[in-house]
Amino acid sequence: MENDPGITPDDARLSLDTVSRITDSANTLVRPPFWLNIVLAISFGMMTFSFASMQHENLWTLGLIIGGIVFVLAMMMYLYTCKLLGAKVKLFPDTWLSLGSILGPAAIYMLVVLGGRALADGAGIAWIPYLAGVVNGTLLSYMLHNHSVMKFQGR
């Protein structure tokens, strides 16, 4: 079964197109419904905003905790919804590329969270927490909608 196929580059290209098309369509199976996407994005944005705005256990500490609880509950709801609909989300990467497709956005989220905190608390720029919250919330929403499937192959 495993030997030289003798297929032409055109055949191979067609097969690769099929794989890409199916992978893209698989995203529709495992992405969260729109309302859940919005809940996840808002709670994540709120966590980012609250973390940047926190000072001496002010009210935004509570915002961070509430945002975190809502985010975890919404994520559990997302996984449960996927299971009900018949497609379980892959939680752990199984190739280097899929690991990269998780770590890349994660590094950006982290950079926004820590950068927002540093600029708001250290440099005292008041509008930075708002920007950080919107950036992280929007990015998470985009990633959940368009890239719910971990990449297992390059294009």
Binding site: M1, E2, N3, D4, P5, I7, S15, T18, V19, I22, T23, S25, A26, N27, L29, V30, G86, A87, K88, V89, K90, L91, V149, M150, F152
Partner: peptide
């Protein structure tokens, strides 16, 4: 490594779909 079993169109699509999720009904 080419695999003739996987290369058949329906099986290629099936594998691509299964590779995208943990389990599918």
């Amino acid at each position: 490594r080419f695999n003739a079993l996987i290369h058949a169109p329906n099986r290629l699509k099936l594998c691509a779909l299964l590779a995208s999720a943990a389990e599918i009904e």
